[in-house]
Design a protein around this nucleic acid. Sequence first.
DNA 1: GCCGTTTTCGGCCCGACTGTTTTCAGTCG
Length: 584
Amino acid sequence: MTNAQIAKIFGEIADLLELKGESPFRIRAYRRAAMNVEAMPKDLSTLGEEELTAIPGIGRDLAGKIRQYAQTGRVDLYEELKNEVPAGLLSILRIPGVGPKTARMLFDKRNVKSIEELEALAREKKLSGLPGIQEKTEENILKGIEQVKKGRERFSLGMGLPVARNLLRLLQESDPRGKFALAGSIRRWRETIKDIDILAAGKRPENIAKAFVRLSAVKEVLEQGTTKCSVLTPEGIQVDLRVVEESSFGAALQYFTGSKAHNIKLREMASRRGWKINEYGLFRESDGKRIAGREEEEIYSALGLPWIPPELREDAGEIEAALEGKLPGLLELADIRGDLHAHTRWSDGSHELDDLVAAAKARGYRYLAVTDHSKGLGIAHGLDENRVREQIARIDAANRKLSDFRILKGIEVDIRGDGALDLDDEVLSRLDIVVASIHSGFRQGKERITNRLLSAVRNPFVSVIAHPTGRLIGERDPYEADLEAVFREAARRGIAMEINANPMRLDLSDRHARMAKQVGIPLVVSTDVHITANLDYMEYGVGVARRGWIGKGDVLNTLGTAALLKRLAAMRHTERPDRKRKSR
DNA sequence: GCCGTTTTCGGCCCGACTGTTTTCAGTCG
């Protein structure tokens, strides 16, 4: 059983209950539970009733359903609901603009049970005349179906952020005195986004909206009002613009940054004090007097809270921590002193060592670890023992010419299918840093793949496990390793886990990073650079780290060169095999 | 279905836009 499966079932129960027209509060309870279950790093099947009910949104009933699923592989309510409601109706809910009421009505009046049936009816114009449906709605349903077919409901942050920043720049150029900001999941650095939220304030709101829909980066206008409009970019990403008065900018920024769960909790706190929060400010219920709104910080301080960084706003304990004055200090991009995972043309990188060093220095780094692939990755020109020795000599020579920069000698050594490393210990012992990772056998069973990772962690020369789950966002699921077991062993050995900053990977994920920190594992944030521009991925890795409550002190590549080398040396669990003979 | 400084029942966040209506329901975030 995985938490994701439970989350999916709870989510579908919510949809099914909605189709039946059940209590919105009961439905919300399932949605909330689904979200929290999915975000739990711990495998729920191992937890008892008491631990389960400690999860926010899980009470006695839902804890019972989780345990029933763990024990029997099914949830009675879910099975019953699926018998009552045709399966196809769930897919109809995925069409934008079609909600439970419409789906239900379509089923009751026209026996619509699938997207295909609905599309056929809409094309033949047989929907007009049904309650609440005329020509326009019919067209919108067809458009919505088109969008569902295009697939992609979420985009990677790596795709969305550049688009968002470009729009922000264009808006600012069109109205230099206007105030613009990114909000929503992008501001929280979520790994995937559903749309781009932009907030604007200015003297002439209607002009901002008009200018927005005319931007060159806007392909289609979905809706347009005076304070809110939605458009599609050529990439197919939806962008929502909200325009507010400058005096409300802070409140609106808070409101539209979310997350929804975080905001609900804040509003509950406000309502207990007799206040109300909306996108225009924080108001006293009794007389409607506005207490805060211009600055985001005011909203928090009115509630007795310090400003909470957007990356933490997931209702994952941040409000409680803020109340106790225990918010963590978070990693900043400026704390990063170097990159510890880099490829050159020696394997599958696109740049020579010198170019890479120049690019790293240009970013203010003090060091860079060259970690080309090992021989097992033939396709990537992996290095064998002899080429590693050759590269070591080259790096030593390069370092002699560098004054305020250090190239670390490293390797990304492949963890083979049987768990053995791809290079012999003797050559590994000559390196400053050994990054180990899996590039094959992703479909191996849980036990086998866990054992591969464990044997890498136990190798005396390994310093870091790179992209520890192997996932590619939206393309490849993580392999089935028991990360908890790997983390425990890594903690025991003092081995670091990588947060791979490539936006397609972001591996470890935010919640795994948080779990690693809790277990006491040091982290590194690395870009896995293959061309020098990839060095700029670092900000994504920092974003993930911040979402994982990671601070500067948890991350090895915030250390200065000498301190880092000392830490890496201390990770070596045994004497170098050659040290006795080669005494200094 | 959850939850508790309004505690074991009775609340549960709030507002904008669209398309359909003629005062609003549905959907969305």
